[in-house]
Simulated assay, not measured.
Amino acid sequence: MRHYKAYCFDLDGTVYRGDQGIESAVAFIQKLQREGIEPFYVTNNAAKTPQQIQQKLATLGIEAPLHHIYSSALVTATYIEQHFPQVKVQVIGSDGIRVALKEKGIHITNDVDVSVVIMGLDHQVDYTKLATACIAIQNGAKLIGTNGDIKFPTEQGFVPANGSFVQLVASVADVEPIFIGKPSPIMLEAIATEHHYCKNDMVMIGDNYQTDILCGIRFGCDTVHVNTGVTSTAQVRLQEKQPTYCMNSLSDWE
Rank of each mutant, 00 (worst) to 15 (best):
G216S: 01
M204S: 01
N200S: 11
M202H: 06
G216P: 07
R237D: 07
E240K: 14
Y209Q: 03
T228I: 12
I191F: 13
L188S: 07
C198L: 01
F219I: 06
E189D: 03
I217H: 15
Q239H: 03
A234R: 13
L188T: 10
M204G: 03
V236C: 09
M202G: 08
C221W: 05
D212L: 00
T223Y: 04
L188G: 08
V226K: 05
Y197F: 10
Q235V: 04
A234W: 01
A190V: 08
Q239C: 04
G220H: 14
G206S: 06
L238Q: 11
C221G: 01
Q239G: 03
N200L: 03
A192E: 04
D201F: 01
K241H: 14
D222H: 15
R237C: 05
I205E: 00
P243G: 04
V203R: 02
D207W: 05
I205R: 00
Y209A: 03
H196P: 03
D222Y: 12
K199Q: 12
K241G: 05
D212W: 02
Q242H: 14
G216L: 06
E240F: 04
I205T: 02
V226A: 04
H195L: 07
I191M: 13
T228K: 13
R218T: 03
Y209F: 06
E189C: 07
D201Q: 05
E240T: 13
P243I: 08
K241A: 14
Q210M: 02
E194L: 12
S232T: 15
Q235G: 07
F219M: 12
H196Y: 07
I213S: 01
A234D: 15
Q242D: 10
G229I: 15
Q242I: 03
C198D: 08
L238K: 09
I191R: 08
Q235L: 14
E189T: 11
H196T: 15
C198M: 04
E189I: 02
R237E: 14
E194R: 07
H225W: 09
G220I: 10
N200A: 11
D212P: 08
T233N: 13
E240D: 10
R237I: 06
Q210Y: 05
Q242M: 11
F219D: 12
V203H: 06
Y197M: 04
G220F: 04
I213D: 00
V224P: 02
T228W: 13
A234L: 08
M204Y: 04
V230H: 09
L188Q: 01
N208V: 01
K241Y: 04
T228A: 08
E189S: 09
M204C: 01
